[in-house]
């Protein structure tokens, strides 16, 4: 099954974030208090290497495994949606101590109560879908 390769990518992602403690509420707390370099080190090193990879892909016009050129979709030019939406997301990230990736990882590790978080996040997404046309973007 062609989709199974994505499960392997997910496993790698899950082990990485769990073993680096990035899934921990306490690590997120520490990050927002600037009390350790750990989380910044993870994010900044991932971005630094990511920038090099993306530039390499663009300059060499690399193709994906399916034969199409790898393209990057430019995001909207708007400021309000990113700053307001980002602010709301940040409130939730710091409060819950998890963002969507770690939520799935911790659910698998045994914190089953996070299915309530998932349901709540889906409800939040649904609420956004309903209100979208009335919100500044």
């Amino acid at each position: 099954m062609r989709l199974s390769r994505f499960i392997l990518v997910g496993i790698l992602f899950g082990i990485t974030l769990y073993k680096s403690e990035a899934v921990s509420w306490f690590r997120i707390y520490e990050m927002f208090h600037f009390q350790s370099f750990h989380m910044y080190g993870i994010i900044f090193s991932a971005i630094a290497i990511g920038i090099v990879m993306v530039q390499w892909i663009k300059r060499r016009h690399l193709r994906s495994i399916e034969g199409q050129e790898i393209v990057f979709h430019p995001k909207d030019k708007s400021i309000p949606r990113y700053i307001i939406g980002g602010f709301i997301f940040g409130l939730g990230w710091a409060l819950a101590g998890v963002c969507p990736g770690p939520m799935f990882i911790l659910m698998g590790s045994g914190a089953t109560v996070l299915v309530v978080f998932l349901a709540s996040a889906m409800f939040g997404t649904f609420a956004y879908g309903l209100l979208r046309k009335r919100l500044p973007h």
């Binding site: 349901a119 709540s120 409800f123 939040g124």
Partner: peptide, 8 residues
């Protein structure tokens, strides 16, 4: 927290 993360 879940609602804010999903909405935001």
């Amino acid at each position: 927290g879940g609602f804010l993360v999903g909405f935001g």
